[in-house]
């Protein structure tokens, strides 16, 4: 279990994935590659993602749960895929705001 809050950063322990929380708060069972994620910079990477959680995480994509209560932004790509409470997170729709500066 980790404590989610906007701006908090977490890393995978089985691949190179890192994320920053855009939306979400409170305790969550956040995993990547099937293994619990830990606060960024606090864990070693060993082993490899579980076979059923190895679809990969793409740099710069946003991932959210079905209820859209959690949104994570991938700041580093990796081979593992993200999940909360055992349910995989999906790539969120890209924002289509026009460039303003």
């Amino acid at each position: 279990m980790v404590e989610l809050k906007p701006g908090a950063r977490f890393q995978s322990t089985v691949c190179t994935t890192e994320v920053i929380v855009v939306k979400g708060s409170g305790e969550a069972d956040l995993t990547c590659g099937g293994a619990a994620m830990v606060p960024a910079g606090t864990g070693e990477v060993s082993g490899s993602p579980a076979a059923d959680a190895a679809d990969g995480t793409l740099l710069g994509k946003r991932y959210s749960d079905e209820a859209d209560t959690i949104e994570l932004l991938a700041t580093k790509a990796g081979d593992g895929s993200l999940a909360v409470g055992g349910t995989a997170l999906a790539v969120a729709q890209a924002k289509t705001l026009p460039a303003s500066d």
Partner: peptide, 29 residues
């Protein structure tokens, strides 16, 4: 994070910045 899509620009895109660096738009650009 709230207004720009990561790598949202195509490889052929370029933006011209003509506001000076001390303007907030010079920073945000």
């Amino acid at each position: 994070l709230g207004s720009v899509e990561f790598m949202g620009a195509g490889e052929d895109e370029a933006t011209i910045v003509s506001v000076p660096p001390y303007h907030v738009a010079g920073v945000s650009a």
